[in-house]
């Protein structure tokens, strides 16, 4: 039975979970999507602990609201939508906390000096540091652009899938991806000179 379940597609698995409340089907879907969602949310929020909580919440919401999924949509877009909404809520909460914080907790803020730090060509050539710079730059892109850039260039989703996840028109998705990329390249101009 388990072997058969692992061979099923996402949509078949969720149908099994909806119809027969098969917890194994749910576990398989969790296994399939926990890491992609973790990667997406981490690139979007930039905090590993918060990211783990968000993905957990996503899976709990999936468990509780399994019947709200409709078979005409792709399962991947449905679960990405849940995760994306939770990630946006987290960002909003953080922004609110920053605005209303009287003391101005420095832990929440990204140190500005570090961002403008000069990176020598040798350091940039080092893959680890290069990735770190790109990650930080990505977190500085406006959230509306960042989300679509991550979904397209990191998660490798199609324009149509992104449109479905974000609830935007395909044209809007394309233009936002373009603007996001432009913003990111501007931030990384010392790496991508041409």
């Amino acid at each position: 039975m388990n072997k058969t379940l692992t061979e099923l597609k996402d949509e078949e698995l969720i149908k099994e979970f909806q119809d027969n409340n098969t917890i194994q089907a749910y576990e398989i879907l969790v296994k399939r999507y926990k890491d992609p969602l973790m990667n997406f949310v981490y690139r979007f929020v930039g905090d590993r602990d918060a990211c783990t909580d968000i993905v957990q919440e996503t899976m709990i919401k999936f468990f509780l609201n399994k019947d709200s999924y409709r078979s005409f949509a792709k399962f991947s877009t449905w679960i990405y939508t849940i995760a994306g909404n939770l990630a946006k809520n987290e960002l909003k909460r953080r922004r609110r906390r920053t605005i209303f914080s009287i003391s101005g907790n420095d832990d929440d803020k990204t140190p500005q000096i570090e961002d403008k730090m000069f990176h020598s060509p040798e350091k940039i050539a080092d893959g680890t540091i290069r990735n770190e710079i790109i990650e930080r730059a990505l977190l500085k892109v406006k959230p509306v652009y960042r989300e679509v850039v991550i979904l397209r260039d990191i998660q490798d989703l199609s324009y149509e899938e992104i449109a479905e996840i974000t609830g935007l028109a395909t044209g809007t998705v394309k233009s936002r991806i373009n603007r996001g990329r432009a913003q990111l390249q501007k931030l990384l101009k010392h790496i991508y000179k041409d």
Binding site: M38, R43, C51, V55, R130, E135, D156
Partner: peptide, 18 residues
């Protein structure tokens, strides 16, 4: 830049996540 974004290290959930 897109190539670099694709090659960013994949972040995975903790072992005890499930």
């Amino acid at each position: 830049m897109i190539e670099d974004l694709k090659n960013l290290p994949k972040v995975e959930t903790p072992e005890n996540f499930e």
